[in-house]
């Protein structure tokens, strides 16, 4: 898909983000990805890998004390003015919508939710009051909330987590954005509600061709909702592939480690341990290690892994940043009984 379209809708190239005044504290170390219309890209990784910083960069919402130090962010070919808040305000919600992890924290507790959705519309669309009101009700209906009239008048604390997340999605959709960035949109929700929310996002995508960037650590969610997956570790993208390819033929040891550590029904216990763990913890962002940032935890690391960061290689569809991709294949062969 990426090859067919010469210009992706959202293109992030070599994005570098660091702590302001501390260029050695590199949070993102050159992240590249692109999303097309109607496509879902999942960004996967564990806490501290930089996935949330990536989505905040695109929104121009990097927290104080953190700044972009390099690379480019383009929407439909035009560089995003992420440091110019006035210009970014015209893009946020209007062209890029965002769904946050905690719906309760994303909404203002002292205003009815309908008013908060209307505020987004008022900011970006020139609609009369009654037209804006009608749009709020139709949005609330579109995201599957029963009795939109009543919901619109409700304050956030009167609604359940799933209902609040639907309201947040309604806000993200309010101005027909081209891209939705959903940062852990269902992490705070029960599984049945999670399924409803993901199904809703999928349906909206079919209807509107919106591009979705799904930031998550839940590989199960990724397996059933994403078209492509980018795996991040230590501020870098370590692997990117179409979803099916990534799950069936992972190349990076970290990707494989993540897949193996995820509980999986019907899988037999391997050896004495219940789950395959990845030993150790993620490196600190200030850790100056010159080589691959996964090397200290990697069972397949060799001398060259410590020397310099591995470049991203492989065919356009399946990129991997590893000197010894799928190194376990050789090992499995020698260990196999026949």
């Amino acid at each position: 898909m990426a090859e067919a379209n010469p210009q992706p809708l959202l293109a992030v190239e070599n994005l570098e983000v660091a702590v302001a005044g501390h260029p050695e504290a590199r949070i993102l170390r050159g992240v590249t990805f692109a999303v097309n219309r109607g496509e879902t890209l999942a960004i996967v990784g564990e806490s501290g890998c930089g996935k949330s910083m990536t989505s905040l960069s695109v929104m121009g919402l990097l927290p104080a004390g953190v700044e972009k130090t390099g690379g480019s962010l383009r929407l439909d070919g035009t560089e995003l003015p992420i440091t110019d808040n006035r210009k970014m305000r015209k893009i946020r919600a209007a062209r890029i919508g965002m769904v946050f992890q905690e719906p309760m924290a994303a909404l203002n507790p002292v205003f009815p939710v309908g008013k908060q959705v209307a505020e987004v519309i008022g900011e970006h669309m020139s609609l009369s009051r009654s037209a804006a009101r009608a749009r709020v009700l139709s949005l609330l209906d579109q995201v599957g909330l029963p009795d939109p009239e009543r919901i619109a008048k409700s304050y956030p604390h009167r609604l359940s987590g799933g209902q609040l997340q639907r309201v947040v999605i309604a806000m993200a959709l309010a101005c027909d954005p081209e891209v939705i960035i959903a940062d852990e949109p269902t992490t705070a929700l029960d599984v049945t509600v999670q399924a409803q929310i993901m199904r809703l996002l999928k349906q909206l995508q079919i209807d509107t061709q919106v591009a979705i960037v799904l930031v998550t650590h839940n590989l199960g969610l990724v397996a059933h909702t994403a078209d492509r997956v980018a795996v991040m570790y230590g501020g870098r993208k370590v692997e990117e592939a179409p979803t099916r390819e990534l799950f069936l033929n992972p190349q990076h040891p970290y990707t494989r480690g993540l897949l193996d550590a995820t509980p999986h029904p019907d899988r037999q216990r391997r050896g004495g341990k219940l789950l395959n763990e990845i030993p150790g913890t993620v490196p600190s962002i200030t850790d100056p290690m010159p080589g691959c940032r996964f090397a200290p935890r990697c069972a397949f690391a060799q001398a060259d892994c410590q020397a310099a960061p591995p470049p991203e290689e492989g065919p356009a569809g399946h990129r991997v940043a590893c000197y010894h991709p799928a190194a376990w294949a050789a090992q499995d062969k020698t260990e196999a009984p026949q």
């Binding site: 399924a195 199904r199 349906q203 839940n218 199960g220 397996a223 059933h224 909702t225 099916r244 999986h264």
Partner: peptide, 17 residues
């Protein structure tokens, strides 16, 4: 409703529009 991390299975029914 549980998404199993296995692409060889069909998506759980609750996920499919």
């Amino acid at each position: 409703a549980i998404p199993v991390p296995d692409v060889t299975r069909a998506a759980p029914p609750a996920f499919r529009p």
